[in-house]
Design a protein around this nucleic acid. Structure first.
Length: 232
DNA sequence: AGCACA
């Protein structure tokens, strides 16, 4: 595999990120960008010399991570193509969500690290109680997968395709909604086809964030906007 | 290039 032979993981590891971006902004942007693939449990980014330019995004579902790895591969993010793989290990937030890692284990891990830093390793390992708990049986924790998107998603780009609009929607209404997000360019309604619209942003990063923010927005009680990337 | 959870 191009992803470097790392087995699927709920968490994705992203590298080649623009190191000039402040940590908080980076995390927010990653959150926005990737929540189009499913629920995100945590985003981790550190600015230490060893870890800058990298981040972890932990999803609730492995399938979200898989789609993200494929579809967002090389996505130009702050002018640099993201390199995405599965994370090598399980995120703490997932471990304590599924109970495969007790709080003591967590602490032990940190102690190990601290010790190694001080003395180098002494090869001493005490409790190996986490052996069998790593794999969570065959239990699909996500049996209720109600993914309504059966169609193939278009690659991220600067233009959004909006569906399920009430027929009386005007471009002024849509503009009001979308222009609150940075990078907004214009709204285009299709006269011949009521109920759909195109909304253009400066680039795919900004369109992605608006999509995430407004996905499913109830423009009327019976109309929830369905937003996807426009097909090229 | 670089796989953590301050």
């Amino acid at each position: 595999m191009l992803s470097g032979d790392i087995p699927p993981n709920q968490t994705i590891y992203i590298k080649n990120l623009n190191e000039k971006i402040k940590k908080e902004e980076l995390k927010r942007s990653l959150y926005c960008l990737f929540s189009q693939y499913g629920k995100i449990l945590d985003v981790v980014a550190l600015k230490t010399p060893k870890l800058r330019g990298q981040a972890w995004v932990a999803f609730l579902e492995v399938t979200s991570a898989s789609n993200a790895v494929r579809q967002m591969q090389n996505f130009p993010f702050y002018d640099k193509p993201m390199r995405i793989q599965y994370a090598k290990t399980k995120s703490d937030c997932i471990a304590d969500a599924d109970g495969s890692l007790g709080p003591k284990e967590k602490k032990k891990k940190q102690d190990d690290k601290a010790e190694r830093k001080k003395r180098g390793d002494e090869g001493q390992q005490s409790a190996t109680e986490n052996g069998a708990t790593a794999e969570n049986g065959g239990r699909t924790a996500s049996s209720r997968q109600g993914n309504p998107n059966a169609h193939e998603a278009a690659a991220p780009n600067s233009i959004l395709f909006i569906e399920n609009l009430p027929h009386e929607t005007t471009s002024a209404m849509l503009e009001l909604l979308f222009k609150q997000y940075p990078g907004f360019r214009e709204v285009r309604l299709i006269e011949a086809k009521p109920g759909i619209a195109f909304v253009e942003f400066e680039d795919d990063i900004h369109s992605s964030m608006a999509m995430t923010a407004l996905q499913g927005f109830r423009i009327t009680p019976q109309n929830s906007m369905a937003i996807s990337f426009a097909k090229k």
